[in-house]
Design a protein around this nucleic acid. Structure first.
Lengths: 288, 288
DNA sequence: CGCCGAATTGATCTGACTCAAGGTAAGTGG
DNA sequence: CCACTTACCTTGAGTCAGATCAATTCGGCG
């Protein structure tokens, strides 16, 4: 029933890349690598069953998880346009994935704009997620990070047609911690704390989101929003009370009420007609 | 003399998109927006003079800098393939930028593979930087973050043909802090500390990197590397001694000596010939 | 010259890391 | 089928890097 293309639901736009693209299927058992950092990039992988993490290694032997990938998602996108994979991809459980030969994809994409735009969409999604992670890492507390992470998983689950409020984590505490910039102990403690507050139920890797509104209230606090706020207060004010009941989300005031800073772009005076090379810059004034 | 294309130096591949692409030039004064989050995406911007920051706003009124952009770089790439800009772009100083109409670019790129691949390259660079930032935020200390940041600036400077060891920062301590996940006070203190150790000289926004090798030794500690290390020690061991003298970099042992984990991909058994839709996933086993 | 935003520096506090000690679940071999 | 191993998770106690609060000081600019 549920069939998805690349990352989003399959709009029946008549494309069935299966015939040309799905040359092979890889089966991996837990812990086996899909590819290694530095391997020549030959294919993308579309996960059919299982879960995969992408990760990098640091000089001092630690490992940094840079992404988790679920069925229906494409692994290897971060290496598109390079010759060698920029990360490791490892199965977190028994996994089955389709290989999508890069050259074939490229060829087909060139002649099939719809496919090309799908790839673009997938890339954009990935970039979005990374950006979100950036702000998560830059300004969220441990509690906020874990809650945000759980909500991401939850979203993914429901996008895939599974329960968004009950699921089994496929990754260890350490891997979660690595992804969201915490130690495994802190992750574990936050799990316990959230359970204590009655926001979730946890038993090892199985998690139930009990009070999703309450969770969202926690995660939304430092989340990015569409509308700029003039109060340039810094990390101030946020009371550390653990958001007991379901504090309702600020309504998605997204676009309607945009307060343009700086007199609404009036400052943007544009000289038209000028023809200069946009790929060069002024060379003048030597130092600096 | 120095002419750069997109982000990299201009290999004379005969492409001069100037004629078709550089329709307009925008001039901004310090603090003026290039575009706002949510503005309809119509153009990319190629910076000719000046510096631009891209940033987002959080629910609680804080601001998070997601990127700094210098002459020769393209701003707006993170919004390619969307209809509305995903961030704000604001001039940090008086700035001149060329507008590159998206539709024209798309058209031209379709017929000029070399241009298309340049755009891809630029996208990849941006993604790389974001990934690096991700690990910076996830596992570096304040000192390591600031040093890494300074080295990034330094690299950029030399890529643009300027001194890599002396430059003027175009952004405030607060903006630096926002970018690398620290408060302005911590940034300021780290500046002072590095100066104290004789690694840099600082006077407000002008910085001189005195001992670049020493700085690299600090930054490289938790930096990602190509070769995986089996010691899965956690955040341990790193003595907090502030890397006094120029501890030499571990030689770029990049590719030569790769130690393949898991018996070098031998685990990857592949069924060929199978033709399944790579864009779908198995639906079976209902729950989970 | 005087104002104001930016930077520095100090004092204090605390959230998350570190070190350490069990507890639990699943897998393995006899 | 059960002891034994192993990997993972939880919880506690102590510490510290960086945040927070709070003055000054510095510089650019009108």
């Amino acid at each position: 029933m549920a069939r998805f293309c690349l990352v989003g639901p399959c709009q029946s736009d008549g494309i069935d890349p299966a015939e040309t693209l799905a040359q092979r299927v890889v089966r991996l058992r837990k812990g086996e690598p899909l590819y290694l950092l530095g391997d020549p990039v030959a294919t993308l992988f579309a996960i059919r069953v299982g879960t995969v993490k992408t990760h990098v290694a640091t000089e001092d032997g630690r490992t940094q998880v840079v992404g988790f990938h679920f069925p229906g998602e494409i692994v290897g996108l971060d290496s598109i346009g390079r010759h060698q994979y920029a990360s490791y991809a490892t199965a977190l459980e028994d996994t089955k994935a389709c290989m999508i030969p890069m050259d074939a994809l490229r060829t087909l994409a060139a002649s099939t704009p719809a496919l090309a735009s799908r790839v673009f969409l997938a890339l954009d999604r990935q970039a979005q997620r990374t950006r979100a992670l950036q702000t998560l890492l830059a300004l969220m507390t441990a509690e906020e990070r874990l809650v945000t992470f759980l909500l991401w998983i939850s979203e993914g689950q429901s996008a895939r047609g599974f329960s968004s409020s009950e699921f089994i984590l496929r990754m260890s505490r350490e891997e979660i911690g690595s992804y969201i910039g915490l130690t495994l102990e802190t992750v574990s403690r936050q799990f316990s704390r959230l359970a204590e507050y009655g926001l979730i139920r946890v038993k090892h890797r199985s998690v139930a989101l009990v009070d999703k509104a309450g969770l969202r209230a926690i995660a939304a606090r430092p989340a990015i929003s569409a509308v700029p706020s003039s109060t340039s207060s810094r990390r101030a004010g946020v009371p550390h009370a653990p958001a007991q009941g379901a504090i309702p989300l600020a309504p998605e005031q997204a676009w309607a009420a945009r307060i343009p800073p700086q007199s609404a772009g009036g400052a943007r005076h544009t000289d038209s007609g000028v023809k200069t090379n946009p790929f060069a810059w002024e060379t003048g004034n030597g130092q600096q």
